[in-house]
């Protein structure tokens, strides 16, 4: 198939604004293009969601976010409450939600929203997205300047046309300054599995720390990534340990 046929089918077209290839972290995740964030292992969906919210665009103005979820994911991993969304985005984004039975419906809705141009960011939680679907969404996203993020389960592998694919897993949290026994700021280990902007960086892992007070995502220096020794809890006299529940 030559270029002319592709253009006539609408698969290839002139871009209104050729996206600058972001060669620095997070490689366009917050600006344009299609990005995939996958769980490192089963049950890491919360970490993946946290990374997505931390790295997602922080709108300067009131904007609308479309959050599409496949019903199976919603049943298994629940939903993101408004409070968490507000905490992470600074309260500017309002969310429209959509739950679909099939991944195809979810991806159709994502494309529809991207093309309409009224939403500032589209997030989709689907079981899988094949190469054709990701290619379509990448093109639509780059043409209309609306970033799309797919949250995928840990079993997702294989080819993708997405700009980046990240794999996110939790790490022991940062030391809590006020209470050594309590968890501190969230930390994640993020693998960059695919990156079209900077292929040389593929395979690199980042240790990130999310500060929910300053809303900043920081790189954790390698020296302190080890789990901080939790302060030994002073023995509590009087109550025996008992199996409950």
């Amino acid at each position: 198939m030559d270029l002319a046929t592709l253009m006539s089918k609408g698969l290839v077209g002139p871009l209104t604004a050729p996206p600058a290839r972001e060669a620095s972290f997070p490689y366009g995740l917050d600006k344009h293009g299609l990005h995939e964030i996958a769980e490192a292992a089963y049950g890491d969906r919360a970490a993946a969601t946290g990374f997505l919210l931390a790295a997602a665009p922080r709108p300067p103005r009131r904007t609308i976010l479309l959050w599409v979820t496949q019903a199976s994911t919603a049943r298994d991993m629940g939903r993101v409450p408004e409070a968490a969304l507000r905490e992470a985005t600074g309260g500017k984004a309002r969310r429209l939600s959509l739950v679909t039975r099939h991944a195809t419906d979810a991806l159709w809705a994502v494309e529809e929203a991207v093309v309409s141009g009224v939403v500032s960011h589209v997030i989709a939680e689907v079981d899988s997205a094949d190469f054709t679907a990701t290619r379509r969404l990448t093109l639509a996203s780059e043409r209309h300047g609306v970033p799309v993020t797919l949250l995928l389960p840990h079993i997702c592998e294989g080819a993708t046309a997405a700009t980046t694919r990240w794999r996110v897993g939790p790490q022991p949290s940062a030391p809590n300054r006020y209470d050594p026994r309590a968890p501190g700021h969230a930390r994640w280990r993020v693998h960059l599995e695919r990156c079209r902007a900077a292929p040389a960086l593929v395979g690199q892992a980042f240790d990130l720390e999310w500060n929910d007070e300053t809303l900043s995502l920081n790189m954790v220096p390698g020296m302190v990534t080890g789990s901080p020794a939790p302060g030994e809890a002073p023995p509590h006299p009087g109550f025996p340990n008992r199996r409950t529940g």
């Binding site: 919360a46 049943r75 629940g78 408004e82 309002r94 509590h236 340990n241 199996r243 409950t244």
Partner: peptide
Amino acid sequence: AAPPENLPGLRPTRLLTQPERVEVIAEV
């Protein structure tokens, strides 16, 4: 749709559809 500001406490990133009962060993 603007939610009220300043809710106390830390809220989870994901809320399960149903609370799931777990077997626990805890201090009484």
